[in-house]
Amino acid sequence: MSNTISKLPSIMPSKMSGQGSLDLGINKQIEIDGVGMGVLSDGTPFLTLRGLARLCGVNHSVIQGINDEWSQPVQQSRSLRIREIIISHGDAVEHPYIEIKQRSGVAFYAYPDVVCLAILEYYSFDAGANIKEEAKKNYRLLAGKALREFIYSQVGYDPSAAK
């Protein structure tokens, strides 16, 4: 038997692969009522995994499940629908989060506002028996681009001053 590999799989998913090799940092970050949020150095507003889960009214392991499904060759209907929602808003993402390497070497996962809104919309309207009233309430509160302005205001970030 040969010790060489004759064929590599076209996709080698890792459990937590990042959104490309962006060299981003966290500009500002805060937690309010258990919802961790902030702004990345490129101006992207984000929520933390636990913050996003709380906003949607689900356990954080549900959001982790979406991460795990995202890179699978056969997509779950949940991940497919969330991708469709993102595309319908005129955006596209390779992964549901952006991985940020912290000084300590520990990875931090930031969920961009476009992904947060798509997951929130999914759990508000499209999750079948898993529709969450908390998600509906928060979707109505934060619908559209309002999430971006909400995060900016909560962390005291002025996008015009960052340019």
Rank of each mutant, 00 (worst) to 15 (best):
M1N: 09
M1P: 09
S2Y: 00
N3C: 06
N3R: 14
T4H: 10
K7S: 10
L8E: 10
M12P: 01
M12L: 14
P13A: 14
S14N: 12
K15M: 08
S17H: 08
S17I: 04
Q19V: 02
Q19D: 11
S21Q: 14
G25E: 12
N27Y: 10
K28W: 01
K28I: 01
Q29L: 06
I30N: 04
I32C: 03
G34C: 05
G36K: 08
V39P: 01
V39Y: 03
V39T: 09
S41V: 04
D42M: 09
G43E: 03
T44I: 11
T44L: 05
P45C: 14
P45E: 09
F46H: 04
L47Q: 03
T48K: 11
L49V: 13
R50E: 02
R50Q: 10
A53Q: 01
R54P: 00
L55Y: 00
V58H: 00
V58G: 00
S61W: 05
I63E: 00
Q64K: 14
I66F: 15
D68H: 12
W70K: 03
P73C: 08
V74Y: 08
S77T: 13
R78K: 14
S79Q: 06
S79G: 10
L80M: 11
R81F: 13
R81K: 15
I82A: 09
I82W: 10
R83W: 05
E84F: 04
E84S: 14
I85W: 11
I85M: 09
I86Q: 05
I87Y: 07
S88M: 05
S88F: 00
S88Y: 06
S88L: 05
S88V: 02
H89C: 09
G90N: 14
V93M: 05
V93I: 07
H95A: 12
Y97I: 02
I98M: 12
E99Y: 01
E99W: 00
I100Q: 06
R103G: 14
S104Y: 01
S104Q: 12
G105A: 08
G105L: 07
V106H: 09
A110I: 03
Y111A: 01
V114G: 00
C116L: 07
C116M: 02
L117S: 07
A118F: 10
E121T: 11
Y122R: 12
S124W: 03
S124H: 04
S124C: 07
D126R: 13
A127N: 01
A127S: 08
G128C: 12
A129C: 05
A129I: 13
I131Q: 03
I131R: 12
K132N: 11
K132S: 15
E134S: 13
A135D: 02
K136C: 06
K137H: 08
K137I: 13
N138D: 00
Y139E: 00
R140A: 13
L141I: 13
L142Y: 09
K145S: 11
A146K: 15
A146N: 14
L147N: 00
R148W: 06
E149R: 14
I151G: 03
Y152H: 15
Y152F: 15
G156I: 12
Y157M: 10
Y157P: 07
Y157G: 11
D158L: 07
P159G: 11
S160Q: 12
S160Y: 07
A161E: 15
A162S: 14
